[in-house]
Amino acid sequence: MTRRGAPAFDVRAAQPGEEDAIARVCRAGFAESSAGLLPPDVIDLQARHYYDVERLRRELAPQPHDPSWQGYVVAVSRDDEVLGAAGGGVIDERVGHVLVLYLDPALRGHGIGTALLDHVTAQQLAVGATEQWVSVTEGNELGIPFYLARGFVVRGRVPYVPVRGGAPVATSLRMSRDIRP
């Protein structure tokens, strides 16, 4: 898969040994999309917590017999450079959740994010999901237009509470779309 000006890439299940590259891409994407929306210390805390290499190692693959986490998928260049990563799962049998989707910020607009979302969606459809949800920090000028363009609709707002708890530091939009074939 390729678009003019973008590297050729494939989307596949993440493999052992790619944890550092996934952490790099997700931390950079999270920091860029959260800048000005979350306090810098919260951005750092969240990125270190969710994209810790040891955590990624444990969560790299799907959990056997548990579709609530279907493992990381990656977009990789022809020379196996990780360009983006995504992951999600299905809760309540029919409700899929996109839990992470980031790519190298320099590669936005070349179809990589869409290909990652399509792969996660296919995983969720394969286990019976009929709708898909995602949370995006309100004001995220990178994520919100991306999801709206792919048929997601804002369904509500919830407080954004940092991983260690405490007072909310922002608001997240809860967005969903129908994914029935």
Rank of each mutant, 00 (worst) to 15 (best):
S77P: 08
Y160D: 03
G5R: 02
G139C: 11
F9Y: 06
L37F: 00
L142C: 05
A31K: 10
P39W: 06
D41A: 14
F9L: 00
R150Y: 10
H65G: 13
G88R: 10
E18K: 07
D66V: 01
V73G: 05
D52K: 14
G36Q: 05
A167M: 10
V82F: 03
E18G: 05
V158W: 00
D20V: 15
A8G: 10
I22Q: 03
G139L: 04
L107P: 01
L37C: 02
D79M: 07
A106L: 09
G128E: 00
Y147T: 08
P62L: 08
A115T: 03
E131I: 03
A23D: 05
L83G: 00
R94H: 15
D178E: 08
V74T: 11
L56R: 10
V90A: 04
R55E: 14
E93P: 03
M1K: 11
A35K: 04
E93R: 05
Y72Q: 08
G151W: 01
P159Q: 02
P39G: 11
R58N: 15
V95S: 06
Y72K: 07
L45D: 15
L125F: 13
Q123C: 05
G89I: 00
A21W: 11
G96K: 11
R48A: 15
A126R: 10
M1T: 14
V136G: 08
T121S: 03
P40A: 06
Q123R: 03
A149H: 13
L56Y: 11
E54N: 15
H65V: 12
V73L: 13
P16H: 13
Q70H: 08
P181W: 12
E18A: 07
G96F: 02
G165P: 12
S176D: 01
L173A: 10
Q124W: 01
A115W: 09
P16C: 02
Y147N: 09
A23I: 01
A86R: 02
G29R: 00
L173R: 12
A14M: 07
E18F: 03
V153Y: 09
R3M: 14
L125T: 12
A167Y: 08
H49Q: 09
S172V: 09
L38N: 09
D80Q: 03
H65F: 15
R57D: 13
S68G: 05
V11F: 12
Y50G: 11
G5T: 06
M1I: 11
E141F: 05
R27D: 04
R174T: 01
W69R: 13
T2P: 14
L60D: 00
Q123S: 10
A13E: 10
A167H: 04
Q15F: 09
R177K: 12
P39C: 11
A47C: 14
V134W: 06
L83D: 02
